[in-house]
């Protein structure tokens, strides 16, 4: 099985990924940071350990599928895909610029390796459900992973998918909830109210796990920044592909994870780091070749 040094390798990739994400956003002058940072470790685990993919053959029929339903975190996915070899790291510079394959939100018509387009929140799980259902009908063995945000979970369309997947017994479908406790604006904290972030956790006090379980999902709960929990959970979900229950991985995460001044701050949902801030980021992530 996986060794500690292996997790250290993934940690290093995630640090590099965070650096590339925040510096790319700074270079293009707009983009998201908080969401890409909270999702980074899980995406690194998916692309580097769990999913079978062929960067040189993105349409390989047997590939596992990943949908970043919280599409505003696109830069996080682009960075991980670049590190994995789907596109040159150099190309990240074109993010959000005219004519780029790297659109503000993932565009399946532009970048090979994406499975669908996202950006209008709440729609990814339905497409993933279609992948999983189609795979069953065609007798194909790939697994489908869909990552959603906790704010995104407020969209009704997700709940439309949540109750259908167990009905069709789709063990080959895994939803991942990036429960980072913050969305874009959300609800302000009352005086003396304490939450993980600087706004109210959208689902605090609500038994999400129990709710998903009652709808028929098998639930795993992990720290979404600890590879020794992330990798086994994703592998267990994938291993239950032939089972009759879809898996929901509830990942407890920190929005803006990785740099002290972005963690738990809703303003870093979408924000451009200054030169000075980038220096601190490079130091905290241990990026030596940053050149800032």
């Amino acid at each position: 099985m996986t060794s500690t040094t292996d997790y250290q390798e993934l940690e290093a990739l995630a640090r590099k990924g965070r650096w590339l994400a925040i510096s790319t956003v700074a270079g293009s002058g707009a983009g998201h940071v908080g969401g890409p940072f909270s999702a980074m470790d899980i995406m690194v685990a998916l692309y580097f350990r769990v999913m079978k993919v062929r960067p040189e053959e993105p349409k390989w029929p047997e590939r596992d599928r990943f949908i970043l339903s919280k599409g505003h975190s696109s830069i996080g996915q682009y960075v991980v895909m670049a590190l994995r070899g789907f596109l040159p790291v150099e190309e990240l510079k074109t993010f959000d610029k005219g004519g780029s394959r790297l659109q503000g939100h993932p565009d399946v018509t532009k970048l090979p390796g994406l499975e669908t387009s996202t950006g209008s929140l709440g729609q990814g799980l339905s497409v993933g459900l279609g992948f999983a259902l189609g795979a069953r009908m065609r007798g194909q063995k790939f697994h489908t992973f869909v990552m959603m945000g906790d704010g995104e979970l407020q969209e009704g369309m997700i709940w439309e998918a949540l109750h259908i997947a167990p009905r069709y017994k789709l063990g080959n479908l895994t939803a991942i909830l990036d429960w980072n406790g913050l969305q874009q604006f959300g609800w302000v904290l009352a005086i003396n109210e304490q939450h993980r972030g600087d706004r109210r956790d959208p689902w605090s006090g609500i038994d999400l796990r129990g709710t998903f379980e009652k709808l028929g999902w098998r639930c795993l709960e992990i720290n979404g920044h600890d590879f020794s929990q992330i990798v086994p959970a994703l592998e267990s979900a994938k291993a239950s592909g032939d089972s009759d229950q879809p898996t929901m991985i509830i990942a407890h995460t920190i929005k803006g994870k990785g740099v002290h001044f972005t963690e738990g701050k809703h303003e870093w949902h979408s924000k451009v780091a200054t030169k000075e801030e980038l220096k601190i980021v490079a130091a905290q992530l241990g990026i030596v070749e940053a050149g800032v």
Partner: peptide, 30 residues
């Protein structure tokens, strides 16, 4: 608001009249 007040600048109203600012979350139909 459907969770975009700091983009649309309805957050100014939220600051001024918190009791009349209703955050409906990311759920536009509702």
């Amino acid at each position: 608001d459907a969770d975009l007040a700091n983009s649309t600048k309805a957050d100014k109203f939220a600051m001024a009249y918190p009791a009349r600012f209703l955050q409906m979350g990311i759920a536009e139909q509702n």
